[in-house]
Simulated assay, not measured.
Amino acid sequence: MDVNRGGGLGAPGRLPGYLFRPYRGDEDHLAMAAVRLGCAGRDEVDARSVVEGIPTAAEIAEASAELDNPSENQVLVEHNGDIVGYATIRWWQERDGTWLYLHRGYLLPDHRGAGIGSDMLSWAESRIRHLVQHHGTARTAVFGANAMASETDSTQLLLETGHRRVFSLVELELADLRSLPEYDGRLPAGVTVGAVDPTSYHAAWKTVVDSYAQAAFTEKWTFERFLATAVPTCWRAAWHEDQLAGVALCSLRRHDPTVGEVEELSVRAESRRLGLGRALLLDGLRSLREHGAESARLYTGTANPHRSYDLYESVGFRRQNEYVRYRKPIGI
């Protein structure tokens, strides 16, 4: 494979000993995991994060397998034969029709500050421009990039190259599920809370999708994708008579089942301000605890119109890190 395809870089050319090369599959996963671990201290990475933690080689293999043409859309940086960084490209269409082309790079701290990170970014942008032309998405395509607030090096590079912050996510942790507050069990008349059975999966998906109807920067989420990743063991739902009024989609982390995640907490507009969100959240957290979780994580937008942040803090969640999302026009 020619890394220069689409105008990308074959080698950075700024310092001797550095080489950009394509991803080669299984032989690279351990070294890529070592890069992520090597970045963790400088970037203050939260190892238990459900947004972006420190992945194992097996998790990197899974993520790479999900890429479209990983050998063309993932590049590794070698220095004197050792892998010291890598960059990945993925893309999707958002609800408003925008095509987001996301690039994400990781470079060991000892190799920063010499222009290698800038060359990785240049490779990614060049490759994305090629993809946009090939896909025919130029009218609605934008560059996307992610960085934790604690990643000062990446943040500086993105801002210097014209990316702008468009929104951020905050991750919260409930460190000890044994400390859950008690719930008095009182619900409005006609409301019940219980497990989600297969006949309610479509209604559960629709409740979540509808909750994002007015939200910007959200990816399209089909019912088929929902079913493909469904692990309903700890899902909880609230019904008002025979209508589904809200859901808490909770799950155990596959690679660390001592950590639970509240993936979605959604209450239909007509059923809000009745205490259903709190009831669902506590019921879901209790279910996680009963299935072996010791702590729980979730993330939410910092500009949340429904003040869910207050709800999460009220049951014991505390802020961990902020994950900033950037955009930049492609300008083809």
Rank of each mutant, 00 (worst) to 15 (best):
T199L: 04
S200R: 14
Y201D: 12
Y201N: 01
H202C: 12
A204D: 03
A204T: 13
A204L: 09
A204R: 05
A204Y: 03
W205D: 08
K206M: 08
K206Q: 15
K206S: 14
T207S: 09
V209Q: 09
D210V: 05
Y212E: 06
A213Y: 01
A215E: 14
A216D: 09
A216R: 15
F217T: 00
F217Q: 09
T218A: 06
E219K: 14
E219T: 13
K220E: 15
A228M: 07
A228V: 13
T229C: 07
T229R: 14
A230Y: 02
V231Q: 15
P232E: 09
C234Q: 12
C234N: 15
W235P: 07
A237D: 07
A237M: 08
W239C: 12
E241F: 04
E241M: 04
E241Y: 07
D242M: 10
Q243P: 06
V247T: 11
A248T: 01
A248M: 02
L249D: 08
L249K: 11
C250T: 05
C250M: 06
S251Y: 09
L252F: 12
R254L: 13
H255N: 14
H255S: 15
P257I: 05
E261S: 07
E261F: 10
V262M: 10
V262F: 01
E263M: 11
E263Q: 13
E264H: 13
E264Q: 14
S266I: 05
S266F: 05
V267S: 05
V267D: 01
V267F: 05
V267M: 07
A269C: 05
A269G: 00
R272F: 02
R272Y: 00
R273A: 10
L274G: 03
G275L: 02
L276G: 05
G277R: 07
R278K: 15
L281I: 12
D283H: 01
D283T: 13
D283W: 00
L285G: 01
L288K: 08
L288C: 00
L288D: 04
E290N: 14
H291Q: 14
H291R: 11
G292T: 11
A293R: 01
E294M: 08
E294W: 00
A296I: 04
R297V: 05
T302D: 12
T302M: 02
A303N: 12
N304D: 15
P305E: 07
H306R: 06
R307M: 00
S308D: 03
Y309R: 13
D310I: 05
L311H: 02
S314C: 04
S314T: 02
G316Y: 08
R318Y: 04
R319F: 08
R319Y: 11
Q320G: 01
N321M: 08
R325P: 03
